[in-house]
């Protein structure tokens, strides 16, 4: 992903930042409403699953030790937020901008080229996902201060760039579906094909059952590594290989998907392969 590689150079061009800036401007104008989901969603999840379901489950065994379900869940929510926000933004919001709002077409009549629009969307989705992850950290910190959680915070800021890179990868996956789904009515497809399988086979909400092939399979899931890495960091204060595996797999996804996304979107937007 060198800045001189023609496939990835547009990610570092000013035009991609201009597209990202456009999305940021729109978002900041609506910050008071835009901030509600990242604050409320983890809050609801922590209360419903952590406190509610956790009240029934009480605790579970993780790495041979007993932890409360709320504590198990907290880092999972953080990882899932990064995944879901980036994927959803680059799928639904980008699709709306491309297909209905025609704002892509407006950008493409300027010095901005398609590769900048696409990279701008991916970078914006990842930026938003990372900022939402930071907000979720704030909610978790409030739970920590309140009492139900006891988390390690020392190394957490170091994970922000790792979360960002992994989120770019999830954005690339979202853009793939943006390129291929015909209409808004088909938006359910990526949810069934990607969000649910990746989300559930990832150790975000519950430990994986002791099935060998499943454990092998999730090694390819960046969300699993992100959730487990954050969990080890936040519950035990350990920096582990999971935190590097997530962005490493993410970089692999970016290398694979972004050129494909660009090719498919060129065909979709311009009718030209």
């Amino acid at each position: 992903m060198s800045p001189t590689n023609p496939l990835f150079k547009p990610a570092f061009d000013w035009q991609s930042r201009a597209v990202l800036g456009r999305h940021l401007r729109v978002h900041l104008r609506n910050w008071h409403t835009a901030a509600v989901p990242p604050i409320c969603e983890p809050l609801i999840m922590l209360l419903a699953f952590g406190v509610g379901l956790g009240g029934q489950v009480q605790s579970l065994t993780w790495r041979g030790e007993t932890v409360s379900y709320l504590a198990y869940l907290a880092p999972g929510i953080l990882a899932y937020t990064a995944f879901m926000t980036s994927f959803f933004q680059s799928l639904y919001s980008a699709f709306m901008r491309m297909h209905y709002q025609k704002s892509w077409e407006g950008q493409l009549t300027t010095q901005v080229r398609l590769e900048h629009v696409v990279w701008g969307e991916a970078l914006w989705s990842a930026t938003l996902a990372t900022s939402y992850a930071v907000i979720v950290c704030g909610v978790l910190a409030a739970f920590d201060v309140w009492g139900p959680l006891d988390l390690h915070w020392a190394w957490l800021p170091l994970t922000i760039p790792l979360i960002f890179v992994t989120a770019v990868a999830f954005s690339a996956a979202g853009l793939f579906f943006t390129a291929i789904i015909p209409t808004l009515d088909h938006m359910g497809l990526p949810f069934f094909l990607v969000i649910i399988p990746i989300g559930f086979a990832s150790s975000t909400y519950f430990p994986l059952p002791d099935i060998a092939w499943l454990h092998s399979l999730v090694q390819a899931n960046p969300l699993h590594h992100l959730a487990e890495g954050l969990r080890r960091l936040m519950l035990e204060g350990e920096l582990t290989g999971h935190l590097l595996a997530a962005p490493a797999l993410g970089i692999g996804m970016i290398l694979l998907l972004m050129p494909l996304d660009l090719r498919l979107l060129r065909k979709r937007v311009f009718g030209d392969a």
Binding site: Q15, A18, G21, R22, R25, V26, Q101, K102, S103, E105, G106, Q107, T109, T110, Q111, V112
Partner: peptide, 23 residues
């Protein structure tokens, strides 16, 4: 373009300001 491809997230002035950012 033939389509109205202005940016509906911005006002009229905002559209011109945003377009200026793309140069």
């Amino acid at each position: 373009t033939q389509n109205d491809s202005y940016d509906s997230d911005f006002t009229v002035r905002g559209n011109l300001e945003q377009t200026a950012h793309y140069y």
